[in-house]
Design a protein around this nucleic acid. Structure first.
Length: 273
DNA sequence: AACGATCCCAACCGCTTGTTA
DNA sequence: ATAACAAGCGGTTGGGATCGT
């Protein structure tokens, strides 16, 4: 049995918002705020819309601080870099771009940046010089960190997980530069995605791994080799963990769980959410 | 001018996560 | 402990705009 719909679809308006509805929602939020309850908001605001739809309209379009279009080269580079580091975590990526929404960044990626990255990959694979930044430009102090909690603010052009599902259980370590690394596999083995050849073309893969590494899992789990091409490097990770300077967990629960089981390395740890 | 192809983005859908009773 | 609910999130889609022939 599925969950009940958030509202009666037969009785609420759907589809594009009219300017009148926009103004109704905008003026209501201006006067009362969102009140922490989107479900109740449409009725209070006199809108014949689903609360979920109101939330989306406000967050993605009506909020006063939103920028539309006109992405700068710096923003492009930051998105490319973050995507290569954390994959399609659009809300996290958008949070590093002031005035951008997750939906906007996602659309921008799907319609433009993905092609740009692919084109750059072709150039890179043929000896071109697309340079993925080992450390992307910091647009503002608020945009300097992958984490939403405290912590280290380094990025890396590193192989992302092939599938979104594989971000589940993602754990990232920032390895010290002295850490000895396994040889970086040829680009062809990394799945052919833009990040691989682009970072490799720029010599970025090695440098990046020297700095930051995500792991699909901290300990055990035979799938690591499938998901992560540098599995050898992390053989016996429990021992090596002490060499690592910082780590990132998908959420607090997993971080504390790792800490409780001694899987968490000494040093700074953060969550991605 | 007409038509089809492609691009772009707002909006929807459904799943996951967090909170509360 | 668990069920119900709301919010958050990422994937997908619909349809208008634009481009190419």
């Amino acid at each position: 049995m599925g969950r009940a719909p958030c509202c009666d679809k037969a009785r609420v308006k759907r589809g594009p918002w009219s300017p009148e509805e926009d103004e109704q929602l905008r003026s209501y939020v201006r006067r009362h705020g969102i009140g922490g309850n989107w479900i109740a908001l449409p009725q209070k605001a006199g809108l014949n819309r689903c609360g979920k739809s109101c939330r989306l309209r406000w967050l993605n379009y009506l909020r006063p601080d939103i920028k539309h279009g006109g992405y700068t080269e710096q923003e492009d580079q930051l998105i490319l870099s973050l995507y290569s580091s954390i994959g399609s975590r659009w809300s996290i990526i958008a949070s590093k771009l002031p005035g951008r929404t997750d939906n906007d960044v996602k659309n921008y990626w799907n319609t433009k940046l993905k092609k740009k990255a692919a084109a750059a990959a072709v150039v890179g694979a043929t000896g071109g010089a697309f340079a993925a930044p080992a450390t992307p430009p910091a647009l503002s102090p608020a945009s300097s960190s992958v984490t939403s909690s405290s912590g280290d603010a380094r990025f890396a052009a590193y192989p992302p997980q092939p599938q979104a599902q594989q971000h589940q259980g993602l754990i990232r370590f920032d390895a010290p530069r002295s850490t000895e690394l396994a040889p970086v596999p040829p680009v062809a083995q990394l799945g052919g995605a833009a990040w691989a050849s682009s970072s490799a073309a720029a010599g970025g893969a090695v440098a990046a791994l020297d700095d930051d590494v995500f792991l699909p899992d901290l300990v055990g789990g035979g799938a690591v080799e499938q998901l992560f091409p540098y599995g050898d490097f992390y053989a016996g990770l429990q021992d090596r963990a002490l060499e690592l300077s910082a780590c990132y967990f998908p959420n607090m629960a997993e971080m504390w769980g790792a800490a409780a089981s001694d899987a968490k390395p000494q040093g700074l740890c953060n969550t991605l959410t």
